[in-house]
């Protein structure tokens, strides 16, 4: 099929899709007229029931916790998949830019970039930790916090320290931390089973004040474990992709 034919098929199919889509919109409530009832019910009962003032977190880590468990394992499997797809092939080996071009100097990272990125590492870790541990109170949670924590490691790389990046996140250790984060989430559910409750029931004390950091029982705990897993998974994925720049195939020179 030529690109021209493909574009025509797209135009015809797109026109048909648009017609059916607009037709479908006619029967729906318009934007801003949310018909309910699920969202309204959850908004009304979540705070008294879970003591979490962040209702989105309550939905993610309590009402739909089983779904979030699957979501977390999607990320876990993606990290495994990236590592598998990018494994070293037989004819590949590691090298470094210095070995490849002995007669040329490796351009150093500018001091300005190194200064700014190194200065941001501390605050980034603090913000990531805050997000991962405050899912129950404010708009945050393990997924967001984990990404920010992983960013701190990328900043090390941006500062021109790939060696330090690799030393800070050895693959075996990051693998283990990722597995512990993912496994602990599943274990919180199994602990509920051991106590005779349903899987992922909120078995911890809810705390007296809704919105306090130590409130909401397993919501805070699960969010924290998710943060650990997400941070480790993204450090692994980013590390694998960055490492590709160091690989040289035997026949390439």
């Amino acid at each position: 099929m030529t690109p021209r034919q493909r574009r025509w098929i797209f135009l015809v199919a797109g026109g048909g899709f648009l017609a059916f889509y607009l037709w479908g919109l006619i029967g729906l409530p318009g934007f801003g007229n949310y018909p309910g009832p699920y969202g309204d019910i959850i908004n009304a009962i979540a705070v008294p029931q879970t003591h979490a003032t962040g209702v989105v977190s309550a939905v993610n880590f309590e009402y739909r916790a089983f779904d979030t468990l699957g979501e977390e394992f999607i990320l876990f499997i993606a990290a495994t998949g990236v590592a598998t797809v990018l494994r070293h092939l037989r004819e590949e080996r590691d090298t470094s830019a210095v070995d490849e071009a002995k007669n040329r100097d490796v351009p150093a990272t500018s001091d300005a970039i190194a200064m700014v990125t190194l200065a941001f590492i501390g605050p980034t870790i603090v913000v990531g930790w805050y997000l991962a541990s405050h899912a129950q109170t404010s708009p945050s949670g393990g997924f967001q916090g984990g990404i920010v924590l992983a960013t701190a490691f990328v900043l090390v790389y941006l500062a021109g320290q790939f060696i330090v990046f690799k030393r800070l996140s050895p693959i075996a250790l990051t693998d283990a931390i990722e597995a512990i984060g993912a496994g602990s989430f599943a274990a919180v559910g199994i602990a509920a089973l051991a106590l005779g409750a349903a899987y992922l029931t909120n078995i911890l004390p809810l705390g007296s004040t809704p919105g306090a950091v130590n409130s909401a029982g397993t919501i805070a705990l699960i969010s924290f474990f998710v943060g650990v897993e997400v941070a480790a998974a993204f450090i692994l994925i980013i590390g694998e992709l960055l490492e590709q720049t160091l690989i040289v195939r035997e026949g390439d020179r």
């Binding site: 949310y34 309910g36 969202g39 309204d40 908004n43 989105v56 309550a58 939905v59 739909r64």
Partner: peptide, 9 residues
Amino acid sequence: PAVDPVVQA
């Protein structure tokens, strides 16, 4: 009145 948290999740 708050928007639907389920779709946000």
